[in-house]
Design a protein around this nucleic acid. Structure first.
Lengths: 197, 197, 197, 197
DNA sequence: TATGAATGAGGCTTCATTCAT
DNA sequence: GATGAATGAAGCCTCATTCAT
């Protein structure tokens, strides 16, 4: 009985996952606005109606996708932190680690940047990937400022926003440079810009 | 007869302008994707059909709006340049000037960033506001590198892309800080990050 | 004064003619349904509004064009008739003469055939070019029947309708045969079919 | 499950049929160009959107209607042929049989004749009903010419085109004569015109 | 009389959402 | 729970027609 329930739950979970994957794919291929629920479900090889057994809107799918990614990013970043490093080293480490994760899930980033513009229900869409991992950056920056490693004439929020912006726009970069390398260079400039001299 | 033609032309120009203004307003309020042509024309207090006497699509309106702004930005930046300044001063000046212009036309920036994602006809929408003013930034950066004022271990393209990113994302900033001040702080960090020590 | 009035009248007549010509051209190029009044007036190099100074609808233009052609057809046919010919010879002559005229104004024929199907106001469109020249054919057929030259077990109306049909459909013929020759052959069959043996 | 699928499919087929019938009716009543999709669906007592579950355009409906009829015409004609008849008898039989079928489906004929003129997408509309049944006529004519029953100074193509034209235009006849009788008389003339004496 | 900008009705099409099976 | 046909709101666009100049 429990087994059966478990199986059922698993099956349900499977369909949900199938939809999420199909949606991610379609979003990546055609963009959020140009992806219809019918399109997602066709890609998922499931009936249209099934969508509503799991989600109530396209926005919710996006939300879920982003939450998943965000959680993974955070998990990775948290596991990377160590205490005996300089704040600059720590921040660089975090930035590079984040770059790698984003690079492996590029499709989601553009979505976050612009999805709120696309949707009829912008209020349902978080402004960015940041909640969580932005916090982490801020914590490191604060640490650096407290230790006198980073300048403190600029609010930490500004700095973390600037890091954030690097990720957002580099995802669209037309320069002939790998994403992670591009990020690395920009982070170098930023770090030099905030280190106390 | 010429008078008559002139009057007509003037009125036509006015209507066009009315539509552009209404569109800008609506785009700003609801985003590009969520703005309908009917909505624009209602805001313009004109019939729906009139729209098509002036533009063939929403995309064309966006294009026009952006071209107008871009031209103004360029005009302003070009007139701002002086020769006896340090490259850092020059770059800062340009950045601040640009910030001011964008601040006064905020509606257009988000559009440029993400409009291509919104539209069924992305090919008709330029990727960003940059052509022109990005070039200017690059020129100043190069000048700085040649004079030994700026580090040259990072390609100028990367730096100008970074500047660009600052504008793009600051437009969405949720921080409790005026746009221009926000930009100013970030530019300060960036400048300190690229100045040779 | 009279001169002036005449001149004015002439000018008015000219504009009207310009519109008719432009309309004929556009009808020929794009078909009746796919031709807009704006399109006609653009081809005529005249303002849209001017159209309504001369016609009240596209249908009326078609009507006028057809009337003009019909009148020319009739004029030609009437001038061709002679009395000492056999009815068969006369009918053949008329058919060939008509073929020539239609061949020189091909554009109008397709219109007549299908225009009534296209229009919102079918009642305003004559079913065919026939009124007038169909009458003429009927007269010749009757003459032939009275003289015993043509079979009389078939109503003249049927025969003239059959002649009519030859013109209508041959205009669309995909066969590799000149229009007039094609008509000639069909008329030969028809004549042999109605001659008394 | 299979039952369910079957039931669904059946219902779907029914809806499709309903739309086709409604469309045929509307086409017949108002002509192809003057029939709107909304009109069709209103006649079908179905929602407008439902149309697009079955067809992608009015043109496709027409195409389907015509294909159906053509297939029926061909089926009937083919089953009518016998071998021991004279070519004239055979041709007459075919003509009358065709007349009957067309008479029972009058709406479709006018469409085929002129639909290409009506539509924005003429390339999608076959030029006429003929492919198939025109070929059949040609075959009979050739047979007659080879056996010396029909004149051979006129190409078979011309003759079959002439037959074709009879159907096309008789459909519009204003004469006070039943369609099939009208056709019969014309075919008599034609047969007498092509029989060798 | 000539003009052409303004208009809105009307057609087409898409798609999120519902609901009966 | 899975399905997919049905739906109609909503957007896009065209175009005949009007009217002020």
């Amino acid at each position: 009985m429990a087994e059966k329930g478990g199986l059922r739950k698993q099956k349900k979970f499977q369909a949900r996952q199938t939809i999420l994957n199909a949606a991610a794919k379609q979003f990546e291929l055609h963009g959020f606005a140009n992806t219809s629920i019918a399109g997602i479900m066709q890609a998922a090889q499931l009936g249209v109606g099934t969508f509503y057994n799991y989600f109530s809107s396209k926005e919710e799918v996006l939300l879920t996708l982003s939450k998943n990614l965000r959680e993974e990013v955070e998990r990775n970043i948290l596991s990377a932190g160590a205490d005996n490093q300089s704040s600059a080293e720590l921040l660089e480490l975090c930035c590079i680690c984040t770059a790698r994760l984003i690079d492996e899930n590029r499709f989601i980033l553009p979505l976050f940047i612009s999805a709120s513009e696309h949707s009829d229900k912008p209020e349902q869409i978080p402004q960015s990937l940041s909640p969580g991992f932005r916090e982490l950056f801020k914590k490191i920056i604060l640490r650096g400022q407290e230790r006198g490693e980073f300048r403190d004439d600029v609010p930490p929020n500004i700095i973390s926003e600037m890091i954030h912006s690097i990720y957002q726009t580099t995802a669209f970069s037309k320069l002939n440079l790998p994403f992670q390398e591009n990020i690395r260079l920009k982070v170098k400039i930023l770090l030099d810009g905030i280190k106390t001299r």
